[in-house]
Every structure is written in structure tokens, then in C-alpha cells.
Design a protein around this nucleic acid. Sequence first.
DNA 1: TTAAATTCCTCTAGAGACTAGAGCATTTCG
DNA 2: CGAAATGCTCTAGTCTCTAGAGGAATTTAA
Lengths: 138, 138
Amino acid sequence: MLSIGDLSRRTGVKVPTIRYYEQMGLLAAAERSEGNQRRYERGDLERLAFIRHARDLGLDISAIRELISLSEHPNQPCADADRIASDHLKAVREKIEKLKKLEQELARIVSHCDGDHAIEDCYVIRSLSDHGLCDGEH
Amino acid sequence: MLSIGDLSRRTGVKVPTIRYYEQMGLLAAAERSEGNQRRYERGDLERLAFIRHARDLGLDISAIRELISLSEHPNQPCADADRIASDHLKAVREKIEKLKKLEQELARIVSHCDGDHAIEDCYVIRSLSDHGLCDGEH
DNA sequence: TTAAATTCCTCTAGAGACTAGAGCATTTCG
DNA sequence: CGAAATGCTCTAGTCTCTAGAGGAATTTAA
């Protein structure tokens, strides 16, 4: 049986975060010691690793909750799990596209500024003041 | 003189957001009508456009506050403004890199799943359960 | 065995950038 | 003038944690 601190050390998930996941219903409420402290076993460790992994991939809590619930029905088809992952992939790709546009605009603005002008001539400031100096439609 | 609703319509910034920017010190506290309602003039409109533009580029409130304060000293050199924009550009690029790694991992996971297996064989679920199936170090 | 050190508990609040709603006041328009 | 629209302040909610207070349990060292 592991204490919450043990679990934290083994997974790299901070103690308050573990309690938070329990509160959010991702981890089942742990057994308690006589003194009311949480006690975990191997299964909890695996599930926490699952959660951590999914979070690292950027999935949000509700998506993870859904995946966990799916994984508890091993005989169902996995179309739903596929959809969750695919949707997320799509969202990630969209975010990348947005950030690339941003990057271009920022790079353009910065490239006009050598840090050597007075503020009143600064391209950074002027670009922000005057949308007309922009390329795209952000 | 514009009401807060007028200002909102002209800039596309929602009314509560305008009040929020005032509270955050980005917009100076507006003049008030006899009945205590905010009244704006052209200068406020320009500043709000500046703020909106900077937010669209992803700059956070404190960076914008700094840029505004810089823009009020037109004779200072613009190195600081340049640094703010450059730092942000760097952060955007880093975020893009992270998301690209994520995208690859997700794409790999999804590509192994045709949505047609049982959950217990689902590559999406298995990947999350077993970090060993991963490519990179996320 | 007992004292000290560490870990644990719950609860509340804060981060960032808004958004929504309650309950009431002002302004505008017909 | 009266109704509708807009405005005001204040509080609380979003999301995923993180930090801290104040106190209890557990572990380690003397």
C-alpha cells in the first residue's frame, strides 16, 4: 500500500494534483488508513500514469474521464476512443495553424525593429497602434 | 462621447471585457456621466484597439501594460518594446514546437486505430496505458 | 518510549483572461 | 411619460492545477 506521497514520487504527479484528480472523478476515492490517510495500490498507480499520459498529450479532464469509462468496457468497439483522439488531433492541428500565423506576424513586426529607434518611431508600437500595418486578418 | 456600448460595438470588444481592462489598468478610468455611466472619447477608442490588437497577437495583460507605459515615453529608445515582442515570438515558437511533437504522437496513435477494434485492443487506450508504446519523451 | 520531523488531512484562495448573472439605476425613444 | 435598452456594481464561474493555513497522523531518531 502506498501513501499519497509514494504515489506522487513514483508518477511525478504532485500530491495536490492527485487529490484534485480524485475530486474530478478520474481516480476512484482511495481507501483510507485508520487515521484517514489515503492508501493506494498498483491499480491506482497504473491509472494515474494513464491520466498523466493523457494530460501530457493535451487531453482535457472530461475527455480523460470518457476514455477511462470506455476502457472499463473492454468489449465495446473503440470508435469512441478513436473519435476522442482524432478530435483532439484536429484541435491540436488548428492550434498550430493559428500559432504559425501569429508567428509570422510577430516575426514581421520584430524584423522591422532594431531596438535602436525612439519609441515614437518603433515599429512594434506602431504596428499595434495601426492595424493597417498588418499582413493577415488576425 | 461614446457610451461603453458604443465603444464595444466599434471595437468588437465586449462590454464586460472593457470594464475588465479598466480594472486591470490597461484603460484609464473613464469619465462618467451625471448618472455615473462611463463616457469615452477617440483616444480611448485607439487605446482599446491597441490592446485588442496586442491580445490578438497573444501578448498577455502585463506585457501590454508595459507596452502602453513605454508608448507614453515617445523619446525613450525602443529596445524594451523590441524585447517584449521578441520574447513573445520566442515563446510562440516554442509552443509551436511542443504542439508539433504532440501532433506527431497523436497522429501515430490515431493511425493505428481504425475504430473497429474492441476497446481492449484499442491502440488509443493501449498507448495511454503503456508509455512504452510511445515515440518521443513528452 | 518519547520527542521531533515529516507527511498527511481539509478547506480556501489564487492564477489568467475573461464571462455570466443578480439586482438595481440611468438613458433613450416613441 | 412610460417602456425598453443600456448601464452600474458585485459576486461567482470557467479550467487545471498550485499554495497556504491550521491541525492530525505517521515515521524516524535519540
